[in-house]
Design a protein around this nucleic acid. Structure first.
Lengths: 207, 207, 207, 207
DNA sequence: CATGAATGAGCATTCATTCAT
DNA sequence: TATGAATGAATGCTCATTCAT
């Protein structure tokens, strides 16, 4: 209702829309969510939403981007203080094993990411999705490199592929965990993956 | 009154619909594919399709089921003749590494499975999806058990979780490979996963 | 409701839609007419209309085309039996002077043609509108040529421009007549135009 | 309480809005132009425009009125100095034949007038449009009357209808010229109309 | 006076499903 | 059985107008 408002106000409004979007898209998925659903969830008018985003697609895109950024940011914060790279990689698994990743909102966020990933892989502009992955790959590759340099990890391993393998594994586990929920022993599987992966990285390294 | 056409005829018709469905759903995804698309692809009339399947959803379901069955059957055929379980597990990776899994139709099939998995995980009747996974889990669990019994694999490993981990990993790799395609070094990553997984299974086992 | 219907049936349906379109577009104009108006007027379902035409625009286009064709056909029928071209040109005016051109449906048809003409002149694909005019120009040019050849009309006149002038004049009179209706002495103005135009064509011709 | 700003300021603002309106309505037509388009073109805020005009319709109305007034004023200025009415009528044609009437802005103005004329002829308050025409009719009727009184024009002609015929002809030619643009030999047709019309008026008058 | 964010009714179009023939 | 015309609720999006600041 306020004209000529501050930039922060507008930014705040966009965040509010994205938060409602996260809830409702998470609940019903991209296709089954209607703009009326989002209107109801956000308690804004349709016009207001279209004032800030020019399509349902755009709302979704921005929501995904925000979630990816928040994830990366979270990871980097946690990592700032750890001295050893082995610990870092271990913590990465621990983060995903922690119950934070099992509650409803996170689950939905994961579902969204995966769903749009797949849908998007059919789209013409697939680069966007590639970019989003590369951020995650790069994040881990850097850590693995530190590990090789410090002598913690075997130098024979191709760290670029190892990073890809890590995220593939995590996404696969999240996928199964998301779909199967309680019949999938999520924590145990992540734990097994952690042991397997770290053993593999440190294999043949003298301690 | 005797039916006008044979059962085989009807079964054949249903298969034809499913084949068209695999192509068109694979190309456009569940939501973006319309029944008119399926009509065009299958070269049948709308009435005919609705005669054999009572909804779009049902066509999709049956198509997925068929694809899953074909995959399991393929795997079992390949495995019949291998004596050592280590070889079997290795072959499992090799199958996924082989170029059969990189061509367009397979890719689409994978996309379909994953997409519906995720969408379905939100649905009320999630059991259906759980069942489909359990078939795969059980298939591998049996093999891993043989491996433990023959002394090839470490007895300390929880084979049920190891099976879950395997399929999570494979689906995760397929997911990344599907989305990223050429910028994802698919074969190398599968190969690394193979080495890692088998090492993990056989770790501590005297040879 | 009938599947696999005859071509005539389909043609008939399309005509029905066009007839309803002529009424409702004529009444409210292109922009103010909604598809719901057309649904109500045609007593068909929205889906049925979209089954035969792929957009509101297309319905409008086809309606215009039909009206133009009907006009040309009407003119040609009337002309078949007249021996002298002067009489033909005279009759052309008489047709427009006749009260047929003053009743509501015709008036609306004229309004539609003119309205879309103008709107269309801004459009990218203006050729369509040009074509429609050229049909009318050509129709008259042929007659004027016969008149010159038979010696009825002055040979100094550029008949191509004279044809353009005729239709400009008629459209202008229709425009004013349509807009001003009763305060525009339509019949008298057409009559004056007739005298002026024919005098001009036959000027200097020995009788 | 005294107004905060002068009347001239307000008048100036309204003119500015109308100038932007002439451009943007001319370009896109009444229906396809949005208030946001007008905001952008006028470089004013939406609130400002609604402060001076109470609706889109009103802006359009005022714009048309202004354009009509300017046209009449232009004509009257040109005519003040001509002694013979035949010359005046000739000049009227010449004005329309001059290239001023072929450039983009004028063309758009013509389009606007015609478009709204037609749309308006459906409206309830048609008198408004009638009035606007009557101004033009009256303007020419006066001149034709002078011509009859001075003996330049035939006394047998109904000058009221002749005035109507003139403007019908001009609008018709503008209509065709506007729609067909380069494939319509505008200057030649106006020139032919001039010869025809003046011959008609002066027919049977001894010189 | 000026601003532009907010409103929400309105619109064209889509599409799964039905059913008369 | 087979056909495809018909249905109409549902959907994403637009835009003239209002009004708090």
């Amino acid at each position: 209702m306020a004209p000529k408002v501050s930039e922060e106000y507008k930014e705040q409004k966009k965040i509010e829309i994205l938060q409602a979007a996260a809830i409702i898209f998470g609940e019903k998925g991209y296709y089954s969510t209607t703009m009326d659903d989002l209107v109801k969830e956000s308690k804004m008018s349709k016009g207001a939403i279209y004032h800030y985003y020019k399509s349902k697609e755009e709302v979704y895109e921005h929501m995904l981007q925000l979630q990816a950024e928040q994830t990366i940011q979270l990871l980097e914060e946690k990592f700032a203080m750890l001295p050893f790279t082995t610990e870092k990689v271990g913590m990465l698994f621990d983060i995903y094993a922690s119950n934070k990743w099992l509650n409803e909102p996170k689950l939905n966020s994961v579902r969204n990411q995966l769903e749009h990933w797949i849908a998007g892989s059919r789209a013409v502009n697939r680069e966007k999705y590639e970019d989003r992955s590369l951020v995650f790959y790069r994040f881990l590759t850097k850590i693995l490199q530190q590990g090789q340099e410090s002598g913690e990890f075997s130098k024979e391993i191709d760290i670029s592929n190892a990073a890809k393998l890590f995220w593939s594994m995590i996404d696969g586990i999240l996928l199964h965990g998301t779909v199967l929920e309680h019949s999938f022993s999520y924590v145990e599987v992540v734990s097994m993956a952690k042991e397997m992966y770290i053993t593999f990285l440190t294999r043949g390294v003298k301690e």
